[in-house]
Computed example of a mutant assay.
Amino acid sequence: MKLPAKSWPDVDWQSVNRILVENTDFKDYIELMPTYYQTGRVCARDWNK
Score class of each variant (00 low, 15 high):
Y29M: 09
T39L: 04
K2C: 04
Y37W: 14
D25T: 01
N23S: 06
M1V: 09
V42A: 08
F26W: 02
S15H: 05
L32I: 03
I19D: 00
P9A: 07
L3D: 05
D10F: 12
W47D: 00
F26K: 01
T24V: 06
R41I: 03
R41S: 05
D28G: 03
K6F: 02
P4Q: 06
W8S: 14
K2G: 10
I19M: 10
T35N: 09
L3Q: 08
D46L: 15
Q38Y: 10
K2E: 14
P34D: 06
L20I: 04
V16M: 13
N23G: 00
T39C: 07
T35G: 08
W47N: 06
D46R: 15
S7A: 11
Y37T: 08
T24P: 06
F26S: 03
R45Q: 08
K6P: 00
W47L: 03
W13R: 09
R45S: 09
Q38P: 00
R45E: 06
P34H: 02
D28I: 08
C43S: 13
A44D: 13
Q14D: 12
D10R: 13
N48W: 12
T35Q: 06
L20M: 15
F26Y: 11
M33H: 04
K49V: 04
E31M: 07
S15I: 07
M1D: 11
Y29E: 06
T24W: 07
P9N: 04
E22I: 02
L32W: 05
T24N: 11
V21A: 11
T24K: 15
W13Y: 14
M1L: 11
M33D: 00
Q38H: 11
R45K: 11
Q14Y: 02
K49I: 03
K27S: 07
M1P: 10
M33W: 13
Y36W: 12
E31C: 04
I30P: 00
K27N: 08
N17E: 15
N17H: 11
T39G: 01
P4M: 04
W8T: 11
R45F: 07
R45P: 00
Y36K: 09
S15C: 05
V21M: 10
V11K: 14
Q14K: 13
Y37F: 12
D28T: 14
I30M: 12
E31W: 04
W8V: 05
L20K: 06
N17G: 01
V42D: 01
R18T: 12
L3H: 12
L32P: 01
N23D: 15
L3N: 08
D25W: 02
S15A: 10
V21P: 00
W47T: 07
T24C: 06
D10N: 14
P34E: 02
I30S: 00
W8G: 01
K27G: 02
T35W: 08
Q14A: 14
T24H: 06
W13F: 13
C43I: 15
M33F: 12
D10K: 15
D28H: 14
V21R: 14
P9G: 02
T24S: 15
F26P: 00
T24Y: 05
A5C: 01
L20C: 15
S15Q: 11
E31N: 11
S7P: 01
Y29Q: 07
D28K: 14
V42Q: 09
V42S: 10
